[in-house]
Design a protein around this nucleic acid. Sequence first.
DNA 1: CTCCCGATAT
DNA 2: ATATCAGGAG
Length: 210
Amino acid sequence: MTEEKRVQEIIKRLKERYPKVRTALNFNTPLDLLVATILSAQTTDVNVNQVTKDLFGKYKSVHDYAKIALEELQNDIKSINFYKNKAVYIKNLAQQLLEKFNGKVPSTMEELVKLPGVGRKTANIVLWNAYGKNEGIAVDTHVKRISKLLGLTKNTDPEKIEQDLMKIVPKEEWGLFSHLIIMLGREICQAKKPKHDKCPLNDICPSSNI
DNA sequence: CTCCCGATAT
DNA sequence: ATATCAGGAG
């Protein structure tokens, strides 16, 4: 099987298992999603959703983040790791949104990655879930780990992995692909204890022990 | 490469 | 006790 055909088969099977996949982060607006995604770095989405449940009620617009005291915002997200840095990112980001983007969350990769605390992974999540755009493939810890297990890349640098994946995944499925892999990583192919016996890819995965 | 730095599972 | 969790900045 060629690499492209194997990728097609992987996508086909994961689509069947996760037909309605999208981010597990709760949000109503692009701003919500941007904040939630920044908070989600090295943290479970369950933890993030718990915090944002109250957060989004209190911070309804860019202005609310921009005008709040840093210490108060830090306290509001204190149960998230790296909360001090993340609060600074969000406040500075809110300022920049007001100054440069008329208070709106931009919808291109180029603009998003210029915002503090926003890298390609975060930008890709926002672009696909909030704007339906496929400008790249979000490479998070799951995509990084599983792409390597599946033999789709030999690189360890997320940006190089993204480039490898963009060559073999059809562009119209870039956003979908990363979300399917993330779901697989959350439910089945976990880092600590991968459930090879329950994996829909175990017969075409070089790392499966089945 | 290091730092950031809480919650949870094992 | 330790590894891991939708990473990014300096």
